[in-house]
Every structure is written in C-alpha cells, then in structure tokens.
Simulated assay, not measured.
Amino acid sequence: MLLLVDTILDIAPARCAGRRPNFPPSFKRKVVEASYQPGVSVSLIAREHDINANMVFRWRQQYQDGAFGPVSQSATFLPVEVIKAPIDLPPAAPLPQESHSEILIEVGNAKLRITGTPGPQTLQLTLQQLLR
C-alpha cells in the first residue's frame, strides 16, 4: 500500500529527554517571523511549535539584533524617537485678591486640595508637576 502525504507539518525538531533543545537558526527565524504577523499572538505561535513563549520573545530580540540574518522586509519596524516635551500651559488669569477659593485636583491616585488664594505661578508649577 502506498501512502502519499502532500502536506509537511512544520514542527520543532525532535528533543532528546533530559537535554536542552538546540533549534537551528532557520527554525527560529521562521517562528519569529510568524509571530510578527498581524493578529497573531506569541503564545499561540509558541504552543503550535511546542516551545515556551518566553523563548519566542528572546528569539525576537535576537532576530532584531541580526542573529538569524537580515531582518525580513515583511517584518517592517517603524523608527520611534522618544522626546521629552515641556508642558506649555497658557498664562493663568489673575485671581481677585479678596476671593477665597478651594481647588481639588485629582490625577490618577493623587489628590491635591488647595485652599486660599495661591498665586498664578504656584498653580502653574503645581499643575506641571502633577501632569508629568
């Protein structure tokens, strides 16, 4: 009886009991590139190949460092530049000197209550520090 198989499953190379696996770079590259496809989760790719998701994340970093050859054009990364931009607040309107007010500011878990008549610079500095 002749059995033809027209589909070859792409699975991880066989492991020896008690030894750490040594996956070839071509297999690592294929797994990493699959993990970069839109809508794919790393843990799902790891489970499909019977490996730990942390290993896939480590391979992704190695892939970015060029350990498995040049980065594929299908896995395009956009350059990102993080800059610290100052917060420019408009000048505060002058408060009447005779008024007594209370201001309550809540940002995340921080709460700040200001009573009395703080100066415009005090309010501006306080807001800048809270909104950092």
Rank of each mutant, 00 (worst) to 15 (best):
Q61H: 10
G39Q: 14
W59T: 03
D10W: 00
P25L: 03
V32L: 04
P94C: 00
R15S: 12
L95W: 03
G39K: 14
F68Y: 15
A46N: 07
P90S: 04
I105V: 15
P25E: 13
E48L: 14
A75R: 07
A75H: 01
I45T: 15
K28N: 13
E102L: 09
N54K: 09
G18H: 13
E98L: 05
A53Q: 12
I103Q: 06
Q73S: 07
L112V: 15
V107K: 13
A12H: 06
A67P: 01
E106C: 10
W59R: 02
L9G: 00
T7P: 04
T122M: 04
V56I: 05
V107A: 10
Q129V: 02
V40Y: 05
V71T: 10
P90Q: 05
G39D: 14
P94F: 01
F27P: 03
A93R: 10
H49F: 15
P118Y: 01
R113G: 11
R113L: 15
V42K: 04
P24C: 08
I45Q: 13
L89I: 01
L9T: 06
V82M: 07
P21C: 07
A92E: 01
Q73A: 11
A67S: 11
S74P: 00
S72M: 00
A53V: 06
N54E: 10
A92N: 02
Q121E: 14
P25I: 08
A12M: 10
R29L: 11
A67W: 04
N109M: 09
T76S: 09
P91F: 06
E81G: 01
V107D: 07
